[in-house]
């Protein structure tokens, strides 16, 4: 049921998006507009069909549920948003396989990893790849994955050193310092720390 509901939501969103796509094109010159319309209208029609089918499926499921007087819950579990992971369903349920996960935990974990993914993107934007990956790996491993301090710190430093050695020193391709350092007019956050050390090592 929840998958059907999501299908309705998604196809409704697509319909709206495509309406916007063809609407935007209305005032463009002919050659700019032709393709958006030639593609946009048929795809819009497909999206409407998909929307109709999803609604129809929902109505049928509901009437089915009503007819046999089964509580909605089991149906939801049977079809509950997970058949997308066809792969997982194929895997024999064992201690390693996640097939036995309780949906609540699954949702919770999806939310937390999504938040971390967002955090990584933001972190790279703000602090650049070297410092960003150091901080975020450390944060993720220690706070989210509950790894030991030792593991988290050495992991973060490992990535940092990899970037420093492979990119900046070996390839001569500096990574972006992040918007904060740039707006402060710094070459990068770690430069002032690393460059004296490098100068000593490289004998400059």
């Amino acid at each position: 049921m929840s998958r059907t509901r999501n299908d309705i939501l998604i196809s409704a969103f697509l319909v709206l998006l495509l309406v916007w796509v063809v609407w935007e094109a209305r005032s463009w010159p002919y050659r700019t507009r032709l393709f958006p319309w030639a593609i946009g209208f048929p795809v819009l029609a497909l999206a409407m069909i998909q929307f109709g089918l999803a609604c129809w499926k929902a109505i049928r499921e509901r009437s089915y549920v009503d007819a046999v007087h089964i509580h909605a819950e089991p149906v939801e579990q049977a079809d509950g948003g997970r058949s997308g992971h066809q792969v997982r369903l194929e895997v024999p349920t064992g201690k390693e396989a996640g097939a036995g996960l309780d949906p609540k935990l699954e949702r919770q974990r999806t939310i937390s990893i999504s938040a971390w993914t967002l955090a990584f993107a933001l972190g790279f934007w703000l602090f650049g790849f070297k410092v960003g990956s150091l901080l975020l790996s450390l944060g993720f491993l220690r706070l989210q994955a509950h790894e030991s301090w030792k593991m988290s710190v050495s992991y973060g430093l490992g990535i940092y050193l990899f970037f420093l050695v492979a990119f900046e020193l070996a390839l001569g391709a500096p990574l972006p310092p992040g918007v904060i350092a740039t707006s402060l007019g710094l070459q990068s956050f770690d430069w002032y720390l690393v460059s004296p050390i490098l100068n000593i090592i490289l004998g400059r």
Partner: peptide, 23 residues
Amino acid sequence: GSLLIPALLTLVFLGGYADTNSY
């Protein structure tokens, strides 16, 4: 998996970034 994730996320965003060098 938890040990691979930070490295993978870094690679993914770096890969996306490096194509055009823009945030």
